[in-house]
Design a protein around this nucleic acid. Structure first.
Lengths: 340, 340
DNA sequence: GAAATTTATGGTAACGTTTCCTTAATCGCT
DNA sequence: AGCGATTAAGGAAACGTTACCATAAATTTC
């Protein structure tokens, strides 16, 4: 069933059918109704390959996710996928390992799949201006932004102020009287921007409150790329507990790390929050259902997902780039307490 | 940069270039080397739209997931996506709401995206033989299988024996001395097969051990489709606790429901496993990191994901359908105990 | 050594759209 | 009435591949 068949059945030319389907050009109401009814009757859907071939442009969007197993991305992925599909844009969701350079993968994908746009969810510090130019299609960075020296006209970004939010969270722990505050994050070698920024927020909070930075209070656990955040947080916390018997609080880069850490803390016989306070980052639903519920820096995931789609479609329609920074919310749910 | 450009630059005809790229037909070594080097030099990738249009067949696979937010599907989705991509088959991952008939969505997707194959992850009871025939492309059902009366040649399936595994889990609770055993599952109206089968396993276990089935010990919570399993489990457990003060154990259809239930149980002041034992289903990682760690019927998600891909590619290459049933493993991690 | 087969290569018609270019009818103005 | 502008519709050339067909050289077969 092709457009030609529809044309024949409707008794009109193919270009007329095309015009009806795409709502372009001049078509009389009579003809429009006739064609529309035939299209509906035979349940005709235009062939996408032919459309894409002719138009030189597809409606394919790639969503590259740095660590797709992180539940924080789950909701965002779902929203992005759903809203794009609703507009007739299929989404290729793809996981990107921590080590991989996602923008190079995007370039490859663009070649392979004739992409019209890219959303990068979570990501690296390894962007280069040339890479953005080589990619050459509307690009939105979510949860991360590129180096300062890259022109802001080359991409849109949706994120929160990682440094500030981390600073606030650690400051909250300090306000509760904690001084030996552990920090758990991803292996720094990966250069993930938020990773670095939240670390800097942690250090600034200590510094501004007159607490000396102590490297033995910082831990990360990488292992194989397949390692989930939970187990990484668990191992990192074990390390911290072993090295710092007087540690009374922990701030983790992500909720999954924090929840893994909780398990290690509780397994060691310590209580949360009585012996050790802990704050995570992201605001995933799991944190609410753990016992005790996890305090966390909530990121407005839904809003950010919607904003990223809007930014992308705006760019697809020729609009400019935009750079939006959201505010996090420090949710106090029961995993922090004043120091004994 | 098209195949014609490559042909011109290599000094050969377009069909020769096509033959080189696709490794078909006769090509002399000299020509092959020449063309290959030009292709590499200009980083040429054949246009997929044109290929698909010409070949009438794509390499697009759709992965329809019933409730994509369930962490149990997370790992499977990732494996399927990764392995398919590795073979050059992009995957369209799509969420399907509980109410929706996924096979009809698959038919629509096939039309829209020219799919060559479909994997359904989790799913309905609403399959019909006509629907499978209308779909007409290799289809694999994972975690679920179609009604008995549908020809097994129309699809492949990868799953576990839901009824038996549920039976075993509930029997284990009975062996610990529990008699008032709650059951939490999805709203039965949705007719999700595993939902129904695990319920039947629950009932058979009671029956065979001489315990009368008590409908007030069964709860489900649907609400809006966006409700996550955690909150549904939480609400359902609250209901059970209110209705059955003597209930000493709970079996949940899924780990997310069980973890939500744990929160409700612990919030009510009861202890796990001292006051109430609980067993979930799936074996998601989250269950291990909750405190206490959740006992669960582990499904070999990785193996099942790999098996589903193999089944699909086998069918794509003209092979027949296959139907594999895996064994679950009852993991005892600390959320069950003999009745006081 | 001629015929048959294998190897090697190029030309070209599709695949199903969209879009430009025609052609033609209708309409609104002076 | 005549003319330009608007409305309406169709024909056909692309888009970038692949696959069939044709041709021809090299090789094998009897």
């Amino acid at each position: 069933m092709t457009i030609k068949d529809i044309a024949r059945l409707s008794g009109v030319g193919v270009s007329t059918v095309s015009r009806v389907i795409n709502n372009t050009g001049y078509v009389s109401d009579d003809v429009r109704n006739k064609v529309t009814s035939i299209v509906r009757e035979y349940n005709f859907t235009p062939n996408n390959s032919a459309r894409n071939l002719k138009g030189r442009t597809t409606k394919n969007i790639a969503l590259l996710v740095k660590g797709i197993t992180n539940p924080f991305f789950n909701k965002m992925i779902r929203i992005i996928e759903e809203k794009c599909a609703l507009r007739g844009y299929p989404v290729f969701i793809q996981n990107v390992d921590a080590q991989a350079n996602e923008i190079e993968i995007a370039i490859q994908e663009k070649r392979d799949r004739n992409l019209c746009g890219v959303i990068l969810l979570g990501g690296n510090f390894g962007y280069s201006e040339e890479a953005f130019k080589a990619l050459g299609i509307p690009t939105v960075l979510v949860t991360v932004s590129a180096n300062e020296d890259i022109s802001k006209d080359l991409y849109s970004s949706i994120k929160i102020d990682d440094e500030k939010e981390a600073y606030d969270a650690v400051s909250a722990l300090i306000a509760l009287g904690h001084e030996e505050i552990g920090f758990i994050y991803n292996p720094p070698g990966d250069q993930l921007t938020p990773n670095r920024l939240r670390f800097e927020g942690y250090k600034r909070a200590l510094e501004e409150h007159g607490i000396a930075f102590n490297p033995s209070l910082v831990a990360s656990y990488g292992g194989e790329p397949l390692h989930s955040g939970y187990i990484s947080g668990f191992r990192a916390a074990q390390e911290l507990l072993g090295r710092n018997p007087r540690m009374s609080a922990v701030f983790a880069f992500a909720d999954v790390l924090a929840l893994g850490a909780c398990k290690a803390i509780l397994s060691s016989g310590r209580r949360i929050p009585d012996d050790i306070s802990i704050i995570g980052f992201d605001g995933i639903e799991e944190g609410e259902f753990f016992t005790p519920s996890l305090d966390t820096v909530y990121q407005p995931a839904e809003e950010m997902a919607l904003a990223s789609i809007e930014a992308l479609f705006d760019m697809l329609q020729g609009g400019g780039t935009r750079h939006k920074i959201y505010n996090g919310v420090l949710l106090r749910r029961g995993s922090t307490k004043a120091r004994k």
